[in-house]
């Protein structure tokens, strides 16, 4: 079973059928940063995994083998392919739709443990960016925030893959 957290605003953009997948529709705030919304989605996944004081991931037969977060509709049609291909990722694996810096990213899937750790750490990216990259170069046209989300995944020790 897969567990995805997707902002409610993308409800109409998701035209594909995702079999064997539970979706948590998250009310993300447009005025917040992409990092904060990713964190919010991750937190919703986490809270749904704690039942009666126990964590559903640490059982002999975990219900969810793959989790994911979608933050925009970029490459959203490839989600189904990704979920088929990465149906049982290892505990430290995360897959983005795209790793190349010249293309924006729209979602990440992976082992639930990787996804929630990465999403939680996204909350501190705003500060990290402010302290380490105070003035991003304007010459780059691609979306900086999503590149930083990939960088973060490397930085916290995950194994990072791109679908394409």
């Amino acid at each position: 079973m897969n567990l995805l957290a997707i902002p409610s605003k993308l409800k109409n953009n998701l035209s594909i059928d995702l079999p064997n997948t539970e979706i948590l529709w998250v009310d993300c705030d447009r005025s917040k940063t992409i990092f904060e919304n990713v964190t919010r989605c991750g937190l919703d996944i986490e809270l749904s995994l704690i039942v009666d004081g126990k964590h559903l991931l640490w059982t002999n037969e975990p219900k969810y083998l793959t989790a994911g977060i979608v933050w925009n509709d970029c490459d959203i049609d490839n989600l189904k392919i990704a979920l088929d291909k990465w149906s049982n990722p290892r505990g430290d694996e995360i897959v983005f739709n795209q790793l190349h810096v010249q293309f924006p990213r729209g979602w990440a899937i992976g082992n639930p443990r990787s996804i929630i750790k990465w999403a939680a750490c996204s909350l501190t990216l705003e500060r990290l960016v402010a302290s380490c990259f105070p003035e991003p170069k304007k010459t780059h046209s691609f979306e900086y925030p999503t590149s930083r989300l990939v960088w973060l995944a490397y930085r916290i020790g995950l194994k990072v893959y791109g679908l394409q």
Partner: peptide, 19 residues
């Protein structure tokens, strides 16, 4: 610090000692 704190709190899901 804020980032260290989050990372430390996620050691419960660390794969290194379990998988």
């Amino acid at each position: 610090g804020s980032r260290s704190s989050i990372l430390m709190n996620y050691r419960y899901f660390d794969t290194y000692y379990t998988d």
